[in-house]
Design a protein around this nucleic acid. Structure first.
Lengths: 236, 236
DNA sequence: GCAAAAGTGTTCTTCGTACACCCATGA
DNA sequence: TCATGGGTGTACGAAGAACACTTTTGC
């Protein structure tokens, strides 16, 4: 294979994408990391991602890399920042476009048991390669800011979910405790969720006692309409 | 000069930055554009910006380009998006990092009279080069979303400002009309502005009649403290 | 039967909103 | 003197916050 076969009039940095993938297991928020198989930082854990190809946009790039490295094809992938410190990659100048992704439990197909991709709780993160800790911190900050005002919590829940589960999600992300009655009232009054008539969900393996909760589903049409009107309000 | 002197193992896109610069003249919000002196799109208006150099971060890049092209060194420059369509630049594959900037009237040093940089009202935009109309639209959308919950309006006002001016700014950005008394109450109750004892501002040239308004200043320390507490609230 | 979790309503307070008059200034 | 714009307070309604008991289920 030819080396140095791509030449330009002026210097070009390499352009990469990295993605902080968030998931929720019913109790707390988790991050998906992959173990690096090559140098640099071989053996360390890193955010999934890779270099941009010339025939794809940056969002296509991160979706391709995510699928290659973790078998995921999440609905929600959003750009949130640029990391361009001069020495962030020891090989050459690499600018990284940072994305976050929100995946539902039902989108996780398994396959990450014996592989080199694993979910980590926020409190038990390993040492990360490159500046990925910094990227992850900013992703978390972005997630916390957005979830105050936008209904992105639903993107982390399965299509059918219970309100107590949703409350645990919010509490896990924001690090606070809400009153059950007020939380339920606020969610129901927002008008964007509706009760499921036919529940198609297996009982959660994490449930142990207590009354069977009702299941709800997110009503995207209602949300889009209210958002268009400027009538949507859900603040935490 | 040597051509094609920079070579790599795998193809690299060019990386550029572009910035939507917002200003407020006391009546309505304006955008700073520069006239292109070279092909492609020679003679058309464009957002200020340019290619990343290898010895600077992307934020340093957009600050340098902005200073070179418009003589501005604004306090506030924020990244808000990536534009990476394959054919967005006819010369070669160029990925653009999009920034917006908020400049105070007092930061504008003049110098843009006979030059190729001009302020345009939102309703009187010329045809823009590249995909810069798309970038500007997304910048505006980002500005409108942020100003709902964050005190970025102050970044467009001089250090000392009047509440009616601030109200005009909000109304101009959001395209709505507020009740004067309620607007003033909300701003004052937020606790982040305080009345100026010694006013050092020349009377506005746009004023024509009416009582002399009071001047206020943004109290950044109070804001930072309230933001840390999670106690800050100012929603429009 | 007991512990753990989920469903449900009311009161009080706070905040948003609607609304009208007087005063200072420039033309 | 008149037109324009800025300052000020109140009353009503909606939304948020605090708060306890009952029901269902697994062990």
């Amino acid at each position: 294979m030819n080396r140095q076969q791509y030449a330009y009039d002026f210097p070009h940095p390499a352009l990469a994408t990295d993605c902080a993938v968030f998931g929720f297991d019913g109790q707390c928020i988790k991050i998906l990391l992959v173990k690096r198989g090559i140098e640099p930082f071989k053996g360390l854990w890193a955010l999934p991602g890779g270099f941009l190809r010339m025939n794809e946009t940056t969002e296509e790039c991160i979706r391709r890399e995510l699928h290659e490295e973790t078998s995921l094809s999440p609905e929600v992938i959003e750009h949130f920042g640029v990391f361009s410190a001069l020495d962030r990659d020891p090989r050459e100048r690499v600018v990284s476009l940072a994305y976050y992704s929100l995946v539902k439990q039902s989108e996780v197909v398994g396959g990450d048991d014996a592989s080199d991709a694993r979910w980590f709780a926020l409190g038990a993160l390993p040492t990360l390669a490159f500046d990925h800790k910094e990227i992850l911190d900013k992703a978390l900050q972005t997630l916390r800011e957005k979830i105050h005002f936008e209904p992105i919590g639903f993107d982390l829940m399965d299509r059918q979910f219970t309100i107590p589960d949703l409350q645990r999600l919010y509490e896990s992300i924001l690090g606070v405790i809400f009153d059950r009655r007020n939380f339920m009232k606020k969610i129901l009054m927002s008008g964007v969720i509706s009760e499921c008539k036919d529940v198609e969900v297996a009982p959660s393996p994490t449930r142990h006692a207590g009354r069977n909760p009702k299941f709800y589903t997110f009503n995207k049409e209602a949300y889009d309409q209210m958002k268009g009107n400027g009538k949507f309000k859900m603040e935490f």
